[in-house]
Each structure stands twice: as structure tokens, then as C-alpha cells.
Nucleic acid binder design. Structure first.
Length: 111
DNA sequence: TTTATGGCTGTCA
DNA sequence: ATGACAGCCATAA
């Protein structure tokens, strides 16, 4: 178990359907700005039967990040399209339309 | 302990 | 627009 990962997971869990957040955004909302890469680690470590909407996390430009398994991206895209998230010509998601904009900008830290 | 490698990102050429 | 680099730093070897 990892307290660090739990913080990231807590944020990912709040991403609404049909919306996506970037790794950096997740890290920041978790109160740990600059740890985008660690968010990637946290998601990579998720079990296949997780309930977390890990597929709603994309990179800063709205694209799916490459990983060890190339099919993982297709699956992620499938899950997103199933939630009505659209991809552009260059396989990018228009963040201005599908990017998650949390209200109150609450963070895990303080409050 | 040290090195290498990441599901990243902002900056600069 | 693309590509190289430098920070971030947890994990694995």
C-alpha cells in the first residue's frame, strides 16, 4: 500500500464520466504539484479489476500516453469513446471541451 | 548505495 | 509544428 498512490487515486476517482484530466492535473489536485510522472506509476500499478476510472487520465495535450502494452491505449480509447469523449484527427481529445474543471478546486491537502 | 527507466511536463531551439 | 533537455522522484535491478 502507498499513501502517495492513495492520494492520486482519490483524485482520479472524482473525475466525472465523459471528462478527462491530465496527469499533472491529478498530481496538482492531490496537493502534489509536479509529480505527474508518479501519477503514471500509480495508474500503472492498478489491478485489472480496479473500479478507478484510470482511462480518464490523459497527458497534458489530451493524448493517450504510450505504455508497455500497445493495446492498452486502444482499450483506453474504447472506454473513453464509450463515455462519449471524442478524439480529433491527431488522436487528441479537445481539452477545452472534455477537460475536467473541478469546482472549488479542492485539494487533498488542507481545506 | 548507485544507475537506469518510466502511462509526465514545461521550456527552448 | 517537432525534437531535445532538464526537472520531478518512485521503483526495479
Amino acid at each position: 500500500m502507498s499513501a502517495l498512490y492513495d492520494r492520486f487515486y482519490a483524485v482520479v476517482r472524482r473525475i466525472p464520466r465523459g471528462r478527462v484530466a491530465s496527469y499533472g492535473q491529478v498530481a496538482e489536485l492531490a496537493g502534489l504539484p509536479g509529480r505527474a510522472r508518479q501519477v503514471g506509476y500509480a495508474l500503472r500499478a492498478l489491478p485489472s479489476d480496479t473500479v478507478l476510472p484510470w482511462h480518464r487520465v490523459v497527458d497534458a495535450r489530451g493524448r493517450l500516453s504510450p505504455r508497455a502494452d500497445p493495446d492498452g491505449i486502444r482499450y483506453q480509447r474504447y472506454l473513453l469513446e464509450k463515455e462519449r469523449v471524442e478524439f480529433g484527427e491527431d488522436d487528441r481529445i479537445p481539452l477545452e471541451r472534455f477537460g475536467w474543471r473541478p469546482r472549488g478546486a479542492r485539494r487533498e491537502a488542507d481545506t
